[in-house]
Design a protein around this nucleic acid. Structure first.
Lengths: 197, 197
DNA sequence: GAAGGATAATACTCACGAGTAATATAATTA
DNA sequence: TAATTATATTACTCGTGAGTATTATCCTTC
């Protein structure tokens, strides 16, 4: 006996992906320090040295997940900007669409989102990245006369990120609301304010 | 030699407070897991057993800090509500005042705020606590006709907490802005919206 | 001024979990 | 088919850091 050595049909890429996937689940559910490599490999039905065949360290696999989140997010934002830029509806519709896209992304990639937003060392920078993109868009539209000139777009962008972050946590990832409805509420609030008229 | 035993002028309460204080600094700067008891006691000029004379465990001291934050925060909100309730200025002024108070608290208690908002397991619940208070206030004012009836005050309250959280991190705790000015910007944004008119 | 409680230090233990050395089997290539 | 490469296992090491057993000194009280 002593089942040792390479297994029949063993596929490195498959193993690596599996480990990455399970790691995302674990990190997202339990955080960095509570997540044990031993748990990951047990769940993946491989042994510890196999893990280190594909990842340099625990740090490394976590970082890889953070990087994936950041890259996917940036790509999504870029693409989203192109798409919505085309069909030039009202400013309200356009912003609504952008927000809906973002929320959809967060919902689809809920595990990566939790990691990138709430656990990574660079969480703050990642959020700043998004905030900056948003700020640029808003500034442009402000110059085009859509918005009041006395609001600081950096603050607005930061606020928007804060809103997204919090509502993603309290409502979106708990499946209490759909991306589009969430986007709707926020846009109405930020565009027109709360004051009765 | 062999300086052992109780020191002259040794004061238990003093030692305990010192440890608590330094722990707050360390946790706030480095997070739970990166913070070592050995570091805390070294900085406090005591030894490890002394630490365990005053705190059951690392968990316990961290939890104590979280609890302090929660209690102080709730107390602050209660008091703030009474105070501003009295001088009934405009709704705008009142909300501005409440926000200013909160931001001032976060700034004063920046270490506890970081711990309670960004590190504690119960971060989410703590924020929900605040959100709930805010929601109640807003609902009341909505019924009094100050606000549009088609905005969901739970979403607004959550949004407000998200905004506070993010702007506290990016601006307030970096001393880039004063509590009052921050409150001002947010209130204008949320009350009147961004749309030019 | 002796006893008991409070405050502290010296010098440990010990589990836990990240990471590894050595080895074996399957797949691929020459 | 022999050598090489890729994939995997068994069975470890080893640092780190939380927590402790024991003992000593100061302070208070009676």
């Amino acid at each position: 006996m002593a089942a040792r050595g390479r297994k029949k049909g063993a596929d490195g890429e498959k193993s690596r992906n599996l480990l990455l996937h399970i790691a995302a689940e674990e990190f997202s559910k339990n955080g960095y320090h509570e997540t044990k490599i031993s748990t990951i490999v047990r769940r993946a039905n491989v042994t510890q040295p196999t893990f280190y065949l594909y990842f340099q360290s625990k740090e490394a696999i976590f970082q890889e997940l953070v990087d994936i989140f950041r890259e996917q997010l940036v790509a999504y934002v870029q693409q989203s900007r192109l798409e919505t830029g085309l069909e030039k509806g009202s400013i309200e519709k356009e912003i609504k669409q952008r927000l809906t896209n973002l929320f959809s992304f967060f919902k689809e990639q809920s595990e990566l989102t939790r990691i990138g937003f709430y656990m990574a060392k660079e969480s703050s920078e990642i959020k700043s990245l998004i905030a900056y993109q948003i700020e640029q868009n808003l500034r442009k539209e402000q110059q085009d006369g859509y918005f009041r000139t006395d609001v600081d777009m950096q603050t607005v962008a930061d606020s928007l990120v804060g809103i997204m972050e919090r509502l993603t946590e309290t409502k979106l990832l708990k499946n209490l609301i759909e991306p589009e409805d969430l986007a709707n509420e926020i846009v109405r609030l930020l565009l027109f304010g709360m004051i009765a008229n």
